[in-house]
Structure formats: C-alpha cells, structure tokens
C-alpha cells in the first residue's frame, strides 16, 4: 500500500512539473494545440514503455475494451479540460478552484458506492484534510 501512495505522489509530482512547463509554453501558444502537443509526446513516450514492458500484443484489445479506454481518455483529457478551462474563464479561479478540488471526493464516493471499497476514519479525515488544503493552496497562491 505504501508503494501505491508513493506512485500517487509521483503522479502529482509529474503533473506539478508539467504545469510549470505548460505555464512557460502557453505564453506563445493557445491551450488546445498546446495540450495536443503534450498528449502526442506522452503517447509516443508511454507507448514505447508499454511495448518494451509488455510487448506489442498487449495492445490486442477487443472493441469493447478499446472503447472503455477511449472513454477514459476523452473524459479526462477532453471533457474535463474543456469544462475546467471554461469554468475558470466564467467564474474565475477563486470560485472554480474549490469546486474543481472536489474531484477526489467524487472518485472516493464512486469507489465506495459503486466499487464497494471501504474507508476508515483515518482515510476519511485525511481525504477531508487534503480537500481543505488543496482549496487553500489553489485559492491562496498570490502573483508576484
């Protein structure tokens, strides 16, 4: 379980680092092609890792399996980002960031209600603490 927590923190580190490069890159390019470039590089890089680790046969997915993964990609990279950018544009970062920070609460709720996962008081308190902390971080970062 500790290994999973380390991987989850590494995921956050990857996205955190990516946000810095996005901030620098999008000074001269709009968001949609910028995201497309970022996703193209990711596809190639992780594709090489996947083929090296599991062989090309790992991509032999049936249409149903393929459709689920496409749904995941569209849900996360297209719909999520589109709604995210528009919400910031309309409501402002101070109003949209706290609402966007509720994403892990949605995931946790789905894990419990649909996935049948269990939660103890430590995990519940930790989740609420992170939720509150992320809201403060997202709305408290001033510009120099």
């Amino acid at each position: 379980m500790t290994q999973a927590i380390i991987f989850a923190l590494l995921a956050a580190l990857g996205w955190g680092t990516s946000a810095i490069f996005v901030r620098l890159g999008l000074q001269n390019l709009t968001a949609t092609p910028g995201t497309a470039i970022s996703l193209a590089v990711g596809t190639i890089l992780i594709g090489i890792v996947a083929v090296t680790a599991h062989g090309p046969t790992a991509f032999n997915l049936n249409p149903n399996e393929f459709a689920w993964i496409v749904l995941l990609g569209v849900l996360n990279y297209v719909l999520g980002r589109y709604l995210n950018f528009n919400s910031v544009n309309l409501a402002g970062i101070s109003r949209s960031a706290p609402l966007l920070a509720s994403a892990p609460l949605v995931a946790v709720a789905m894990g419990i209600l649909i996935g049948g996962e269990t939660i103890n008081s430590f995990i519940l308190l930790g989740t609420l603490s992170i939720f509150g902390g992320v809201i403060l971080v997202a709305t408290g970062g001033g510009r120099g």
């Binding site: 999973a4 991987f7 955190g16 920070a101 894990g111 930790g126």
Partner: peptide, 28 residues
Amino acid sequence: GVTFLYTALELAPVVIVAPVSSVTPLIS
C-alpha cells in the same frame, strides 16, 4: 504522471489513491 497514477490504482483502492494524487496544486 498518468502512468504513475494508473500504477498506483492497480496497487491500491481509489479511496487511497485519489486523495493522495490530488496534492498537485501544492507541488506545482
């Protein structure tokens, strides 16, 4: 980041991975 997240999800329940991986704003 995406690959690390999916690896974490393979190893542990969503109720643990989702909150921990949401610390991104603090890191960025």
